[in-house]
Design a protein around this nucleic acid. Sequence first.
DNA 1: TTGTAGGCGTTATCAA
DNA 2: TTGATAACGCCTACAA
Lengths: 348, 348
Amino acid sequence: MNNKKVTIEDVADKAGVSPSTVSRVLNRKAGRHMKEETKKKVEEAIKELGYTPDKYAQAMRHKETKVIGVLIPDVSNPFFASLVWGIEDKASEKGYSTIICNSQNNPNREEELVETLIKEKVDGAIFTPCGDDSRAVYELTDEEIDVVFADRKLKETEFPIVTASYFEGSYELTSQLLDNGLERIAYVRGPVNISSVEERFQGYRHAMRDNGVSIEPGLIQKVDTSRKIDYQYENVSLDAGFEIAEEYLGLAELPDAILASNDVIAVGIIKALREGGVKVPGEVPVCGYDNIPLASYVDPSLTTIDVPTAKMGEMATEMLLNRLGKSRADKPVENVSTDLIYRDSCPK
Amino acid sequence: MNNKKVTIEDVADKAGVSPSTVSRVLNRKAGRHMKEETKKKVEEAIKELGYTPDKYAQAMRHKETKVIGVLIPDVSNPFFASLVWGIEDKASEKGYSTIICNSQNNPNREEELVETLIKEKVDGAIFTPCGDDSRAVYELTDEEIDVVFADRKLKETEFPIVTASYFEGSYELTSQLLDNGLERIAYVRGPVNISSVEERFQGYRHAMRDNGVSIEPGLIQKVDTSRKIDYQYENVSLDAGFEIAEEYLGLAELPDAILASNDVIAVGIIKALREGGVKVPGEVPVCGYDNIPLASYVDPSLTTIDVPTAKMGEMATEMLLNRLGKSRADKPVENVSTDLIYRDSCPK
DNA sequence: TTGTAGGCGTTATCAA
DNA sequence: TTGATAACGCCTACAA
């Protein structure tokens, strides 16, 4: 088709005006004054020629690139995949493109990717760090690039963030188990330095404490899924859950129930229990977190806590876009709410 | 830190040379002539100032952006997630960034995204179309943007592609089931107009025919997962598999075995059978395709066919990068090989 | 209301 | 071997 790039000058020629007039038609700030006729001529020429402004020339001229960077640990984790979906939807709706970067849970790679984002001159970034003490983010803010966190926050800093009520979710679930008379509740948690993991864990701890139930040491286990990397996130968490559960099987007495940081770990746990001849939930109920799609399809279906990740992504994007330009903006913290979902891995 | 952007001129000043000299140091084609001393001075200045060339200015000057576009149906599908991982790895290794676009199985959105890629002036694109007759790709080639297909091919066209030996995988699996004396083998396939789905299906068909076994109508079912969209790919395929299996349950006689286009559908099938009181694999063995991580964790673990998706992504990227610039290039078609994996959803 | 001119950061060309 | 200059496509003062 009309191949060779058409520039603003071509449009100007065709419309019989100057390039700046064309530019004005394109960028008319609010109500600007110009003859209706000129405007019409120009618009026609634009349409006929199929003209689109050159992104790169625009970016060079003024400050905007209309690109936002997304820095997350790993898209192959379904949790982040749908977070990203939410981000992309909202961004493209608002005329922004996105660059997705996977840190692969590696702080060094995280820093490299931040460099990339800077080179790409992104207008802003949505950031889910792989730890809670990333200094990478400061390179962004040094360059005056707006940053909004999603899901996980940094220790001892106050960046704008959209996250979920993780503490409350865990607290509620744990309380219900206690109400059902289960007391020796085990907890399998993810890496220590991730705020969302920590909050989920603290919800459990506080619920136990508030109900006057002490936690037997040895019932709390930790998987460190951030060390190993794999093309498929689930590979490492499944195995991790499996291995931890095998340790529980070695205990003199099995726990009354097992809670996991997330659904994938929980599925690994269930498999180990099954292979160890333990009935779920008959002997040991198991619960996860996140409500991944497969949660309702494994046997037994996972009791879990739903997290509206896509919505989280949308909200983070809106928050970021609202802040762009403005030196400061409105709400610095928003929470999506979680939702407890009972299924047959855990008797109500 | 050193905040305000440092330009090539700053470097030139600091080194006491002209901007063009700095540029030459940066882009010295092969062995070029310049005093070692000047070169050294310039390199020092570059390092001290932490100078990096401005991507946008470069893109405007010559033809390259060092960006490749990736157009796939849906990253929340673990299959594509790891494909993308492979692409990103290889691309960043070669100094390219990527723009990931999800068509969400929507041909219209696919066309929009192609426009985006053109505006972004990507140097090339990796494309997994949502159907087999996408005309969107021609807009890319009209703009002289190189395109390599991944996983799925278009009908009646010969674009360079990296895919997998899907036909052979299915053929082998089906043959083995037949060898085991299973004859009434059902097949649940995905949408008609996707080449990888079709090839998997044809592998089954040919194996049946070559073994002289005719296929009972009614045993072949189709799920159309491309209609519904969801933030999580798995939601729709799981449900689809579930619903189809319910139809089999209504049959006068159950099939001897059920094959599915992919693992996710297979998990949906298994759940329906289980709820219908049918033992897997005792009464009806079930097999999938793709070897997703969860395949070995569901109960019973899925017999499936491994597809090295990440490798496929790497190869597609290499193929694309090799073609950039060159009007034509070497191998237009490469296949990764698949690998049959027996697990306990299917007796050997 | 519209046009002219200059410059954003690079690099290719040509002259020195 | 190095430097000056123009040009990529666009936008914004400023002038008309």
